[in-house]
C-alpha cells in the first residue's frame, strides 16, 4: 500500500518535471523572444540589451537552470502588458475562475450522475430514451450559442439577470447553467454506461440471485462498482476546472483564467501564458494523483501487496 502510494506520487513528480521542461522548451522553440517582443524594427543593440537583461544570451542549459531556480521562488517574470508580476496576474484571475468552476462542478456532478443512474435503472424504457434526447441536446448545443440564448432570454427579454461580470450571486447563474448543461449531459451518459456495466457485472447478478433485494443490490453492489469507473472521469474533469471555460468566460466577460488566456495569447504576454500552462498542467497532475490514491482506497483489487 505504502509503496503503491509512493509510486503514484513518483509518477506525478515525473509528469510534473516533464511538464516544466516542455513549457521551457516550447517557449524557446517558438522563436526568439527578443524579436517577438521588440518587433522586427528593433536595432541589434536593442536586441542585445534585451537579451542581456533577461539572460537570453546564456547557453541553453544555463537558461534552463535559471528558469528552474525562478520557478522555485515562484518568480515567473513580469507581465509584458501590465508590468505586474505574472503570478499576481494569474492568481487574480484564478480566484474568479474557481468561484465559478467549483459550483459548476458541483451542479454538473449532482445533475449528471443521478440522471445517468436513473437512465441506467430504466434502460430501454421511454424515460431512458427521453433522457438520451435531453442529454444529446444539452451536449450538442454549443456553449457560445446556449450562453447567448440565456442572455437573450433572461437578460434581454426578462431583464432578470446581469450579462457580464461577477459582482453578485446573480451573475453566477447563467455561466453556471451554460457550462453545467453540456458537462452534465456528458456525465449523465458516462454515469449511465458505468451504472449499466455495474448492474451487468456477474457478481451483481450473483448477489441478486442470492436473493438480496433489488434495491440493496443496486446501491450496495452495482453502484460502488460503477463509482470506480466514474472516479477516473470525475478526477480528470475536476483537474480541468482551473483552466476555466474559455468560451463561457468570454461570453459573460468573466475575469477568469479562460479570458486571461485569450487576452494574453493575443497580446503575446509570454510569462502569463507560461504560468497558465504550468498552473493548469499542475492541477491536472494533482487531480490525477488524487484519483490514483483514492482508487487505491476504494478498489481493493489495486491494493495487491505482492507486486
Amino acid at each position: 500500500m505504502k509503496t503503491l502510494c509512493l509510486r503514484a506520487c513518483g509518477r506525478a513528480a515525473v509528469t510534473l518535471a516533464l511538464l516544466i521542461t516542455c513549457v521551457f522548451l516550447g517557449l524557446h522553440l517558438t522563436g526568439d523572444p527578443a524579436t517577438l517582443i521588440l518587433g522586427f524594427e528593433a536595432t541589434p543593440d536593442d536586441v542585445a540589451a534585451f537579451k542581456l537583461a533577461r539572460g537570453l544570451d546564456l547557453p541553453m542549459y544555463a537558461q534552463y537552470w535559471r528558469y528552474l531556480g525562478d520557478l522555485m521562488h515562484l518568480d515567473l517574470g513580469k507581465s509584458y502588458v501590465t508590468g505586474l508580476p505574472a503570478i499576481e496576474v494569474f492568481l487574480s484571475a484564478m480566484g474568479p475562475t474557481l468561484h465559478l468552476m467549483l459550483p459548476t462542478a458541483l451542479v454538473t456532478l449532482l445533475i449528471g450522475i443521478p440522471l445517468g443512474i436513473v437512465a441506467a435503472l430504466h434502460s430501454g424504457t421511454r424515460l431512458d430514451r427521453g433522457l438520451l434526447f435531453v442529454s444529446v441536446l444539452g451536449f450538442a448545443v454549443p456553449n457560445f450559442f446556449f450562453g447567448l440564448l440565456l442572455i437573450l432570454f433572461f437578460s434581454v427579454w426578462l431583464g432578470w439577470l446581469p450579462t457580464y461580470g461577477n459582482a453578485s450571486w446573480l451573475h453566477y447563474i447563467m455561466p453556471i447553467m451554460t457550462i453545467a448543461t453540456s458537462e452534465a449531459a456528458i456525465f449523465s451518459r458516462m454515469a449511465r454506461s458505468a451504472m449499466l456495466e455495474g448492474l451487468n457485472l456477474p457478481c451483481v447478478q450473483a448477489a441478486y440471485m442470492r436473493g438480496i433485494s433489488r434495491q440493496r443490490v443496486i446501491w450496495f453492489h452495482a453502484f460502488p462498482n460503477a463509482l470506480i469507473s466514474l472516479l477516473t472521469v470525475a478526477g480528470f474533469f475536476l483537474g480541468t476546472l482551473t483552466a476555466g471555460a474559455v468560451i463561457t468566460e468570454n461570453i459573460f466577460s468573466w475575469p477568469g483564467i479562460g479570458r486571461l488566456l485569450v487576452v494574453s495569447v493575443a497580446k503575446r504576454d509570454i510569462p502569463v501564458v507560461q504560468l497558465i500552462v504550468l498552473g493548469v498542467g499542475c492541477s491536472l497532475i494533482v487531480a490525477n494523483l488524487l484519483v490514483d490514491l483514492l482508487s487505491l482506497v476504494v478498489n481493493p483489487k489495486l491494493r495487491r501487496t505482492t507486486r
Binding site: L201, H221, P224, I228, P300
Partner: peptide, 16 residues
C-alpha cells in the same frame, strides 16, 4: 439457492 459456475466473478471485488 443457486450456486454459480464462475466463483471469482460471482464475488464482489470490493468487499471482503
Amino acid at each position: 439457492s443457486l450456486m454459480l459456475q464462475d466463483a471469482l466473478s460471482a464475488l464482489n471485488p470490493l468487499y471482503t
